[in-house]
């Protein structure tokens, strides 16, 4: 199939027809990639909800050069031949991204000092890059009590941004779904069907896909800040999954096992609960070596491949 041309922030790229604007931008890489809080390439039907990846389409296509009337969700909009997209070059897009960040933080407890996700939280990254220094909100936040969903996973609904990723994991990866979204609006919540525990070999992946600290690993909770642990690639022969994981070690002790995430925070492979929760001895694993960490999050302190962007040089 012949490739089509699309221009994002004045950079031209050729992609296959049907590619989304987001994936075209990821092909270019770097600063022109819109942030994503709900899209997850490995989950069918994800995206379109958080609106943080909205971009401006200045020219629809070569055939129909009219601009699109509204900002579009780049994760769910396919590119057309000759499309011209503005992301960080559009003040309108940046202004709206700031607003979306504010909306996402409106009911977020900002309890980062006691949150296990701190340091590898996508919402932290989004606020760091797009949020305001002074917050305008004085409103009371919605509150829920933390609950256990299954014996290994803790749900802090207060922190949830309703990206629906964990619901999609439950739908697409596991059988006998018992968990979904209840209620509607800002009072909707992720929950299980009447205190049913989530009991499934792959349920632990919900922790990895969660962009915030709403779903955390109970075997790791409060053991260490993530930036004090060192990630190592490791593998084992696993009958259920690929067995390719990242071990998070402090000294010689394995504190946590997760799947391997790419630079957009997406898992390369979904791993089973057995690998994740039950194998925390060094003898369980073949350690391949230290994991190469991309720009994402403070775990890579002093190891950034690219410079951390701040808002002043972004708007240029």
């Amino acid at each position: 199939m012949s490739l089509i041309k699309v221009t994002i922030d004045n950079i031209e790229v050729e992609v296959e027809p049907g590619t989304t604007i987001l994936n075209a931008a990821r092909k270019i890489g770097g600063a022109v990639v819109p942030p994503t809080m709900c899209y997850y390439s490995k989950l069918e039907g994800s995206g379109g909800k958080c609106r943080s990846c909205l971009v401006k389409v200045a020219q629809g296509s070569t055939k129909d050069p009219r601009p699109m009337p509204k900002l579009v969700a780049s994760c769910r909009t396919a590119v057309m031949d000759g499309m011209v997209v503005q992301n960080i070059t559009s003040p309108e897009v940046m202004e709206n991204r700031r607003a979306i960040t504010e909306f996402l933080l409106l009911n977020h407890p900002l309890d980062c000092p006691v949150c296990d996700q701190a340091g590898e939280c996508h919402l932290q990254d989004l606020s760091y890059e797009h949020g305001l220094v002074d917050t305008e909100t004085v409103e009371e936040r919605r509150t829920f009590a933390p609950i256990d969903i299954g014996d290994k996973i803790k749900l802090h609904m207060n922190r949830c941004i309703l990206c629906y990723r964990c619901v999609m994991v439950a739908n697409q990866l596991t059988d006998q779904r018992v968990h979904g979204v209840l209620g509607r609006g800002d009072h909707s919540e992720i929950s299980t069907f009447i205190t049913r525990a989530i009991d499934n070999d792959f349920s632990g992946n919900m922790i990895d896909v969660c962009p915030v600290g709403a779903l955390t690993d109970k075997t790791f909770r409060f053991k260490s800040r993530v930036w004090f642990t060192k990630p190592f690639d490791a593998h084992r022969d696993c009958p259920k999954c690929s067995g390719k994981v990242v071990l998070w070690k402090k000294g010689d002790e394995i504190l946590r096992v997760t799947g391997r995430k790419d630079k957009y925070g997406e898992l390369e492979d979904f791993i089973c609960n057995d690998c994740r929760f039950e194998h925390k001895e060094n003898s369980d694993w073949v350690i391949e070596g230290p994991r190469k960490i991309e720009r994402h999050s403070v775990i890579s302190q002093n190891h950034y491949e690219t410079e951390v962007r701040n808002r002043s040089n972004q708007s240029q």
Binding site: F103, D186, H187
Partner: peptide, 21 residues
């Protein structure tokens, strides 16, 4: 509108409640 927002996308979910407050 706050009561009836489905809660799927963030501007409406958070914004409608904020405006009401």
């Amino acid at each position: 509108y706050h009561h009836e927002s489905c809660g799927q996308c963030s501007p409406c979910r958070e914004g409608t409640g904020w405006m009401e407050k």
